[in-house]
C-alpha cells in the first residue's frame, strides 16, 4: 500500500516535470505561492548591511539624484551604461540558489511586485548585466543569472556593433564554453577581436533586456569550419558569485513621442 503511494507520488512528480519542461501549462502560481510564503523569511535571514553603510547609501541616493554621489558602488551602478536616465529599483541579493554544474544559476533579491518589479525585466549591477527576472512574488523576485544554460542574450560586439548572441550553452559548431563564461556567435558577417566590448542589443519594450548594458569582453575568437560567422567566448563583466547590490530596470512609459521623419518624395524618387 505504502509503496503504491510512493510510486503514485513519483509518477505525479514526473508528470509535473513534463508539464513544466514542455511549457504546456504555467506552473508560475505554484512557485509564486512558495515565494510569497518563504520570501519574507529569506529577507529576514539575509546578511544585514551595517546601519552606517545603509545611512550612507540612503544619503548617496539623494546625492546621486542631485549631483556627485558619495558611495562609489551606488555611483557606479547609477552611472552604468544602459541604466543612466532610466528608473531603477535598487535591491540586495538575499539568497543564492543551489549551484548548478558551473556555478550559481538563480538568486533571490529583496524587491518584488510591490516595488514595481515585473517578470522579464533587466537586472544590472555596477559592473554590467546580471540577468533577468524570471519569477515575482510580493516581497521578493527570482533572477536568472548570466551564465545559466537557459539564458541567452542578443548582443552587439565591438565598436561597429556587429550583431551576435551570447548564451550559457555552446553555440552551434563551437565547443562548450569554460565554466563562468558565455558562448558567443555572430549572426551576421562581421569581425570581432579579442578584447572587444559586448553590450546588450536590447529587446522590444526593454523586456527582457534594455539596450546598451555591458555584458563582458570577447576572448578566443574562432572561425569554425562550415559556419558563416565567427564564434567566441564572452568573459562576463559581472562576477555572479559575489553579487550584493543590484538594480532592476523598470522603464518609464514614453511621455514624448518620437519625431516622425518622412523622406521627401523627390529624393526618394531620385
Amino acid at each position: 500500500m505504502r509503496r503504491r503511494l510512493v510510486l503514485v507520488a513519483v509518477v505525479l512528480t514526473a508528470l509535473v516535470l513534463a508539464l513544466d519542461a514542455t511549457g504546456l501549462t504555467s506552473l508560475g502560481p505554484l512557485r509564486a505561492g512558495a515565494a510569497t510564503a518563504l520570501g519574507p523569511l529569506e529577507r529576514l535571514v539575509a546578511p544585514r548591511a551595517d546601519p552606517a553603510a545603509q545611512e550612507r547609501l540612503r544619503g548617496s541616493v539623494q546625492a546621486a539624484v542631485a549631483g556627485p554621489a558619495a558611495d562609489d558602488r551606488l555611483a557606479g551602478l547609477l552611472a552604468a551604461p544602459g541604466v543612466d536616465g532610466t528608473p531603477v529599483v535598487l535591491a540586495r541579493v538575499v539568497g543564492v540558489g543551489p549551484s548548478g554544474p558551473a556555478g550559481p544559476e538563480r538568486v533571490t533579491i529583496d524587491a518584488g511586485s510591490r516595488d514595481g518589479v515585473e517578470v522579464d525585466r533587466t537586472v544590472v549591477s555596477a559592473d554590467g548585466l546580471v540577468g533577468r527576472v524570471v519569477a515575482v512574488a510580493p516581497w521578493t523576485s527570482d533572477v536568472l543569472l548570466v551564465g545559466a544554460p537557459e539564458l541567452s542574450v542578443g548582443v552587439r560586439v565591438g565598436a561597429r556593433g556587429v550583431l551576435g548572441e551570447a548564451s550559457g550553452t555552446a553555440a552551434p559548431g563551437a565547443a562548450a564554453p569554460a565554466p563562468g563564461t558565455l558562448s558567443l556567435a555572430l549572426v551576421e558577417r562581421g569581425t570581432m577581436r579579442d578584447g572587444d566590448p559586448v553590450v546588450t542589443l536590447g529587446s522590444i519594450d526593454g523586456r527582457p533586456f534594455v539596450p546598451g548594458v555591458r555584458v563582458g569582453t570577447v576572448r578566443e575568437v574562432e572561425r569554425p569550419a562550415g559556419r558563416l560567422a565567427a564564434t567566441g567566448v564572452v568573459v562576463p563583466a559581472v562576477d555572479v558569485t559575489a553579487l550584493d547590490l543590484v538594480a532592476v530596470v523598470v522603464p518609464a512609459p514614453r511621455r514624448t513621442p518620437r519625431p516622425v521623419v518622412t523622406p521627401s518624395p523627390r529624393r526618394a524618387a531620385g
Binding site: V6, L17, D20, L30, E42, G97, R106, D142
Partner: peptide
C-alpha cells in the same frame, strides 16, 4: 528514503530562488 528525497527535492525546487524545471530535483 525515496519519500524523503521526493519531498526534499520539491522543497529545493520551490523555495526561492528554486530551480528549473519543477520536479527534476525531486526525482
Amino acid at each position: 528514503g525515496a519519500v524523503a528525497g521526493l519531498a526534499g527535492g520539491w522543497v529545493l525546487d520551490l523555495v526561492p530562488p528554486g530551480a528549473e524545471p519543477l520536479g527534476a530535483h525531486a526525482l
